[in-house]
Computed example of a mutant assay.
Amino acid sequence: MRPAWSMIFFTTLAGAAQGLMLGLVALDAAVALGLLPAPKGPLFVTGAVVVLVLGAAGLVAATFHLGRPKRAWRAASQWRTSWLSREVIVLPAFLATTLAWGVAQWQGGTTFWLGLLAALLALALYLCTGMIYAAVGVIREWASPLTPLNFTLLGLASGLTLGAALVAFHAPALLPWAAGAAAVATVLGAITRGASTWRNATLAPRSTVQSALGIRHPRIVQSSQGTLGGSFGTREFSHGAAPDLLPRLRWGVAVAAFVLPVIVLATQGGRLPGVLLAALALLQWAGLLGERWLFFAEGRHPQNLYYQRMG
């Protein structure tokens, strides 16, 4: 499939926002239970602002995927059957609850129930976003429980790494805990994404050129599409990149999104300054942009049996 950059930016930005909010709520609960010391700086208020900024940036990116942005409100009308409609409903609810939680933190009020609701909405949003693609049965690379699981763990990893940077600025005493949580989430994300990559590489195709055409000849090659240029099929259902790009990009994603962050967080994360941790979060996000591009590019639509090359 052709990767849509609007969706790549939306899913990575919103995923990081959800992961950061889950980390903030977990930290708030640990402080309330006396398991960790209370941060002295405005960590929770600053974190809520960052979540809202990331979520708003994701929404702006998503609008570029709409053919008619003025009719975006209609996307919520099919909530009974559409995961996209559910996502459209849950995302604003998540941002509104995060705003209320941040205001309550700023005013020193009770935040437990608001934090719990925000955490549940963040998890529900991961599920909705992942199921938009996992429910597309015709694209077998997406139609797997690993899809929503990867969306959740990778968003959690990037959000917690960003959270470690905020902790370094506002509550250095909590940094070993924050860095350790980010490292664990990144490792889990690497495991599930690796499992998804292995599954996609070993999928046996249900259809071949021979079965699609009803011809049993062992070698059938499309020499021309029969037109003078590209078509909707070649533009929308194929990434169009050189065949050797995907393996190289996979290695780059592995290093930037998983290997380097885990090494740094596990060995130096507890004592790095906030600026360097913020740079690490930015590097990991760049790697996850490549990971999400690969996710879309790995999806193989059956119609590509007929449009393998333009000729």
Rank of each mutant, 00 (worst) to 15 (best):
G108D: 03
G108I: 03
G108L: 08
G108P: 13
G109W: 06
G109Y: 04
G109M: 08
T110W: 06
T110E: 12
T110G: 13
T110Y: 09
F112R: 12
F112E: 12
W113R: 07
L114R: 00
L114I: 01
G115S: 08
G115W: 02
G115L: 03
G115H: 04
L116I: 14
L116M: 14
L116Y: 06
L117G: 10
A118M: 04
A118S: 11
A118L: 03
A118P: 05
A119Y: 00
A119T: 13
L120T: 09
L120R: 04
L121Y: 05
L121K: 09
L121D: 10
L121A: 09
A122P: 06
A122E: 10
L123C: 15
L123K: 13
L123H: 13
A124G: 15
A124R: 11
A124V: 04
L125Q: 15
L125H: 11
L125S: 15
Y126F: 15
Y126W: 13
Y126C: 11
Y126N: 10
L127A: 14
L127F: 13
L127S: 09
L127I: 09
C128G: 12
C128K: 13
C128H: 11
T129Y: 04
T129I: 13
T129V: 11
G130F: 07
M131V: 05
M131L: 14
I132H: 02
I132W: 03
I132N: 06
Y133G: 00
Y133I: 01
Y133V: 02
Y133M: 00
A134W: 02
A134Q: 08
A134I: 02
A134H: 02
A134V: 06
A134S: 15
A135F: 07
A135Y: 06
A135M: 13
V136I: 14
V136Y: 04
G137M: 01
G137Y: 01
G137L: 03
G137R: 05
V138W: 04
V138F: 07
I139T: 04
R140L: 01
R140I: 00
R140C: 08
R140N: 08
E141N: 10
E141L: 10
E141I: 08
